[in-house]
Every structure is written in C-alpha cells, then in structure tokens.
C-alpha cells in the first residue's frame, strides 16, 4: 500500500566508499547534485555556443539568468560585489536547478536536507565574515554596536546583536530546507489520498495539480530568497556602520 510520505527523503548509497571511519558513499543525493551541476553547465555552455548577437532561446535563458544575478549584485552590494559574481551565480543556479529538478517525479530533492542547505549557508556566513574583516579590519565589529542606544542597555543589546548575527545562517538554511521538505511531503500525502479514496480520489488529484504549481513557484522563490539574502549579508560586510 501507500508508502510513507517521508520515504522520498531517504538517502541511499549507490556506490559505497569507506575512507577510514568516514562514509564517503556516492548516494542518490550526490547523484542529483552531479546531475544539477551537469544540467547547469550544459545549459550555459550550449546556450553560449553560438554567441549570436540576436540570442536564440537557449542563449536567452543563459543571458537572462546572468543579467538577473548581475543586477541583483549591483543593486544590493554595489560595485565591490562584482568580484563575488561567480560564486553567487553558481550558488543561485545550483539551488534553482536543484529545486526544479526535484519537482520531476522519481527524482531526489537534495535541498530538502538541512545538512545540504546548512553547509551552503555556512559557506556564505563564514565567507561574509572573512570578507567583512578583510575589508574593514576591526571596524567590522561596529556591526554589533547599536547606534544611539543608552549606555546601560549596551551590554544586553550587543549580546542580542551578536546572537542575531549568528542566527543568520540558521534561518537562511532553515527557510530553504523547511519550504522544500514541507512542500514535497504535502504532495506525497495528497498523492496517497488518491489511492485510498477510490472514485472520490479525483479531488486530491486536483489539489495535487494545484500544489505542484505552487511548488514550482516555491522552488524558484526560495532559490531567489536564499541568493538575495546572501547578497544583503555581503553588503553588510562592505558597509558596516555606514
């Protein structure tokens, strides 16, 4: 009968690799990450193959996504952010296609695992902190001192500011992971209803269709939110205490 709605999130090793005590198996999660990287690479390479003045369909996709991220960095970080374009662009395309490929039946959504999203958020967090200190030196710590606050409140406020800084990678990764996992679970649950209800199963089918549409929107929106927040954090690294 109907399997558990959470079964889709199980990570299975495809090729088992043991390095000492570490489990480095190539899993279905790794497989879909590799596929995502492959699809994005192919899209960009094939899209830009002709380098036509008047772009074809594929070239338009490649150019539009380039322009989208390029504008996002210019608007949110400023000219100094240009250096980080390759990283931001790669991250956005990886998440976007990871989310979207996860919508294909029988595929695996690696962004529905908090390990994956948290490590990505951690890379952003550590990167932004390092860049912040490199660009401002110790002045970067001004980020934690609220302006114009009464002196007797400062100790408390600084602690809260520091905590709210460290919470950023957690909320960043939690948002993406929770959205993807909740959506896919919901799809599976309503899919399960179809079998159980028999003839009345038409209703859950309709809901599933609507949910699938919603999930595609969520997949795109969450990739966007993750990327734009990373850009805003990066902006903080360049302009603390502005």
């Amino acid at each position: 009968m109907a399997s558990s709605p959470l079964e889709q999130f199980v990570v299975n090793p495809i090729v088992e690799i043991q390095a000492g005590s570490a489990d480095l198996s190539f899993t279905n999660s790794s497989l879909f990450m590799a596929i995502t990287v492959g699809v994005v690479t192919l899209l960009m390479l094939l899209g830009m193959r002709h380098r036509a003045l008047i772009p074809g369909r594929l070239q338009s996709v490649a150019e539009l996504s380039y322009g989208f991220i390029s504008d996002m960095i210019r608007d949110n970080v400023g000219p100094r952010g240009r250096v980080y374009f390759p990283f931001v662009f790669t991250m956005f395309m990886f998440l976007l296609f990871g989310n979207l490929l996860g919508m294909i039946p029988y595929s695996f959504t690696f962004t529905s695992h908090i390990v994956v999203t948290f490590i990505l958020a951690l890379v952003v967090f550590i990167g932004v902190t390092v860049i912040g200190f490199a660009a401002n030196g110790p002045k970067f710590l001004k980020l934690f001192i609220p302006e114009g606050a009464p002196v007797f409140l400062l100790p408390l406020l600084i602690v809260i500011e520091v905590i709210s800084y460290f919470v950023r990678p957690i909320s960043l990764s939690l948002r993406l992971f929770a959205n993807m996992m909740a959506g896919h679970t919901m799809l599976k649950v309503f899919g399960g209803f179809v079998l159980v209800l028999g003839a009345a199963g038409v209703l859950p089918i309709l809901i599933t269709v609507a949910l699938t549409g919603l999930e595609v929107v969520v997949a795109i929106l969450q990739a966007y939110v993750f990327t734009i927040l990373s850009c805003l954090y990066l902006n903080d690294a360049f302009h603390p205490g502005h």
Partner: peptide, 13 residues
C-alpha cells in the same frame, strides 16, 4: 533602537 549596527538593512532590499 532597532537598527543595530546596520544589521538592520537586512531583509530590506
């Protein structure tokens, strides 16, 4: 008082 040390600009594109 909520501005912090410009962490405030977060979430406000």
């Amino acid at each position: 008082w909520a501005r912090g040390g410009h962490l405030s600009k977060l979430g406000d594109p």
